[in-house]
């Protein structure tokens, strides 16, 4: 002890070699250089347009005003669209949860190789254009579509079901597109749960169901929350599916914006709508970050 005590604190009297400092700075600069292309791209194509959007939304006929925001809150039809948008997003999230949780659980119990193989199946929809998939669903779900004909011929129904141009069509189409966003984070978190914990619970007297409810389920929640967050936020901004498969009561906020820009040429109002959507999304993110931490979304550790 005496020997170490007499030694001066490291760094107290030792000056950094200037050559070393130069080397260090150069290495830092090189690392920053790697970041630069992405940073520039984001600034030009993302940050700048969003700022423009914000600015546009607070101008009314050349003067700064909150007129457009007032309209959103006061005009009945816009509020209704807002409500529809949130309701559909929530419904889609709930359905994805119900379908995705068991699937993710099943995948997480498989051996790594089998799980990877099946994950590819989950991901295949990812690699197909939304438009193509939406039209495919239209073929399946329309009045004379595959599903209706099949049900009719089996004698299960007497007349075709309405599954298009209404809520059912929108939900089917959106769930199909968004399901992987639920399954992937849930799977990543579940995969990280030590199966010995489940064994330990059973060893300590828990039935398999109790072990699941008290140990596995709580530990899988970060993944579920992450998946739900992704699905919900992506669903809020959906356009193609509700436009093609929805009825008159399934108009979502993105359609409203498109309408304002293309037919009404009311750019500031569309900008205000976009800003509201952005603000809501950010608020949800902040709440999520407070509760669980954003690093969990793409499968950080579970501890």
């Amino acid at each position: 002890m005496a020997v170490t005590a007499r030694r001066p604190a490291v760094g107290a009297q030792i000056a950094v070699d200037p050559r070393m400092r130069k080397l260090y700075l150069r290495r830092q600069a090189a690392l920053f250089g790697l970041l630069l292309p992405a940073l520039l791209l984001l600034l030009v194509l993302f940050v700048y347009p969003i700022l423009r959007l914000l600015v546009t939304s607070v101008y009314d006929q050349g003067i700064i005003s909150l007129e457009h925001y007032r309209r959103i809150v006061e005009v009945d039809v816009y509020l209704r669209v807002m409500r529809t948008t949130f309701t559909i997003a929530l419904q889609v999230t709930a359905i994805c949860l119900v379908l995705g949780y068991p699937l993710a659980y099943f995948l997480s119990t498989l051996r790594a190789r089998t799980a990877r193989l099946l994950l590819i199946l989950v991901l295949i929809p990812f690699w197909t254009s939304i438009l193509v998939r939406t039209y495919a669903w239209m073929v399946l779900l329309q009045r004379q579509g595959v599903v209706n004909r099949w049900l009719l011929e089996l004698g299960l129904i007497d007349e075709p079901l309405r599954m298009m141009y209404n809520r059912i069509g929108v939900l089917v189409g959106m769930v199909h597109v968004l399901l992987p966003f639920m399954v992937l984070p849930a799977f990543a978190v579940m995969r990280g749960i030590d199966r010995d914990l489940i064994r330990a619970a059973q060893n300590l007297g828990a039935t398999p169901l109790q072990a699941f409810l008290r140990i596995f389920f709580p530990l899988s929640l970060p993944g579920v929350a992450a998946g739900s967050l992704l699905v919900f936020i992506l669903a809020l901004g959906f356009f193609i599916t509700p436009a093609l498969m929805g009825g008159r009561t399934e108009i979502m906020i993105a359609q409203l914006m498109e309408d304002q820009i293309r037919t009404q040429l009311n750019f500031p109002f569309a900008a205000a709508l976009g800003t509201v959507l952005l603000a809501v999304t950010l608020v949800i993110f902040v709440i999520y970050n407070r509760l669980l931490g954003l690093d969990k979304i793409f499968g950080g550790d579970v501890s």
């Binding site: 030590d194 010995d196 914990l197 064994r199 330990a200 619970a201 059973q202 060893n203 300590l204 007297g205 828990a206 039935t207 398999p208 072990a211 140990i215 530990l219 579970v302 501890s303």
Partner: peptide, 18 residues
């Protein structure tokens, strides 16, 4: 089944519920 055996076990990595 394991939960009916009433046997204590210490696992390799402790398996404490985090």
């Amino acid at each position: 089944p394991p939960h009916k055996r009433n046997i204590g076990m210490v696992f390799q990595n402790y398996a404490l519920f985090p």
